[in-house]
């Protein structure tokens, strides 16, 4: 019965339809919140590194995944990339595409952290700084993975429902996205 009610038109859904009705009614507002959440995360990730890209390159090096010739370019490009993703999300331009890209990048981060834990790498010097790497015995890999997994949620929502309030693409394209 409740499932029938939840499929009912939006007007009478809030009282009888529970979460699904609420989501149907407010999808574009929820997507807006998700956009802002994800954008704030990217800005937060980016700005810490942007001021000290060398330190970030050192953090990238400490992961010992990329070959040396790619460490510095990636270390420098990463904060700009994150900044661009944040900007596009705030503007609401190409939201689904940016959400896909965000999720992929987060998966790369998660993979990197898990592989650090698996290889038992803890770095002893030159690695404080922005990447969150710490001296021996002070790793928080589980927490870091959980944090990034949590951030994948808004990205996943936006891949599913990219249309949102106050987005440039909706202004240009109209409903529905």
């Amino acid at each position: 019965m409740t499932s029938m009610a939840s499929k009912a038109p939006a007007k009478d859904a809030p009282t009888s339809g529970g979460i699904r009705g609420f989501v149907g009614d407010n999808q574009q507002w929820i997507s807006l919140v998700m956009r802002v959440l994800l954008a704030v995360m990217w800005f937060n990730y980016s700005l810490g590194k942007l001021t000290s890209p060398e330190t970030n390159a050192q953090s990238v090096r400490a992961f010992r995944i990329l070959p040396e010739s790619l460490v510095s370019p990636f270390g420098y490009a990463q904060p700009y990339l994150e900044l661009a993703l944040g900007l596009l999300l705030i503007l609401g331009l190409g939201t689904r595409l940016v959400a896909v890209f965000s999720a992929l990048l987060l998966l790369v981060y998660i993979g990197g952290i898990i592989s650090l834990g698996a290889r038992g790498i803890a770095i002893s010097c030159g690695c404080g700084g922005s990447g969150g790497l710490v001296p021996k015995g002070h790793t928080r890999y589980t927490l870091d993975v959980l944090r990034d997994l949590l951030y994948i949620l808004p990205a996943a929502w936006l891949i599913w429902k990219p249309a949102s309030k106050f987005s440039l693409e909706r202004a240009l394209l109209g409903d529905p996205i």
Binding site: P53, A57, S72, P73, G75, Y76, A77, Q78, P79, Y80, L81, L83, A84, L85, L87, L88, L93, V98, F101
Partner: peptide, 13 residues
């Protein structure tokens, strides 16, 4: 925009 950002980063580096 994404590609440009990456390019700027690489050039700065």
């Amino acid at each position: 925009v994404i590609a440009l950002a990456a390019l700027i980063g690489v050039l700065v580096q």
